[in-house]
């Protein structure tokens, strides 16, 4: 599904290298977690994968379902089935969540040469998604993320994922800013979207998220590289011993 090979990237404005040779392969239906200390390059990796401006890829390659991801615009990546759940979802005043989601879904359908969904059909579709994720559809009538609590914002990300049905979802620090109850609700939502066709990359600083979203593999990132990979038990080990041994390296 996703194959990252020797990926190098820098922050454009200051020409500062952040990713220094990342190698990572995620198979179809697998859930991988990347853990690491602050500044290790975790979030940069998610931005580079989703195509945010301001990062320059200086080496290596990323293959996503047979396509060269680094050659694509952000909207093309979304159409190809990539989804980034933001650490800080953006507020868009004046755009109703419903309009936003329908526009997004139809643009993706258009890009794939599929038939667009009409307003009535979409309403029905999104209500079912809300119901399955235990989200009140009142959120759909509000402007995107405006005045949402931290928990609501993350649930909105989950809902977007449910509506857009990506092949690969990157969850960037989904646990940040959430209390334990909100975390559980969001994790339940994410788990409901697990499927054998959908891969996920969970980026987190803390082990606690992985109690709820249990990964197949855990990678440790430090200083812009994956320095160790293992099974889910690696997360527990990190919780106990911290990142110090990896940072020193």
């Amino acid at each position: 599904m996703l194959k990252i090979s020797n990926l190098h990237a820098a922050i454009e404005s200051v020409n500062k290298p952040i990713l220094k040779g990342v190698d990572l392969e995620i198979g179809t239906g697998e859930i991988h977690a990347i853990m690491g200390p602050n500044g290790s390059g975790k979030s940069t990796l998610s931005y580079v994968l989703s195509g945010r401006d301001g990062y320059e890829v200086t080496g290596g390659s990323v293959d996503f379902a047979g396509q060269d991801l680094m050659d694509m615009e952000p909207e093309e990546r979304a159409a190809a089935g990539l989804f980034l759940a933001f650490q800080y979802p953006v507020e868009i005043p004046g755009v109703q969540t419903m309009t936003f989601l329908r526009t997004a879904l139809n643009e993706i359908k258009k890009a794939r040469g599929e038939k667009e969904i009409d307003a009535v059909g979409f309403l029905k579709f999104v209500r079912e998604k809300c119901k399955s994720l235990n989200i009140s559809d009142d959120m759909m009538r509000r402007a995107v993320n405006v005045g949402f609590s931290g928990g609501e914002k993350k649930r909105n990300e989950t809902l977007q994922m449910a509506v857009l049905e990506p092949k690969l979802a990157i969850l960037d620090e989904t646990d940040s800013g959430l209390d334990i109850d909100a975390l559980r609700v969001v994790a339940d939502g994410v788990n409901a979207l697990r499927s054998e066709n959908r891969s996920m990359l969970v980026i987190t600083h803390y082990q606690r998220l992985l109690d709820y979203i249990v990964p197949d593999k855990v990678h440790v990132m430090a200083n812009g590289r994956i320095v160790k990979s293992g099974g889910k038990e690696l997360a527990l080990e990190l919780e106990e011993h911290g990142y110090a041994q990896y940072e020193a390296a």
Binding site: S50, G51, R52, D53, E73, P74, E75, R77, A78, A79, F83, L84, F86, P89, V90, I92, F100, T103, A104, L105, E107, I108, A111, Q160, L164
Partner: peptide, 9 residues
């Protein structure tokens, strides 16, 4: 970027 990341050109 948020809108584009959701597939909107």
């Amino acid at each position: 970027f948020y809108l584009r990341s959701r597939g909107i050109p």
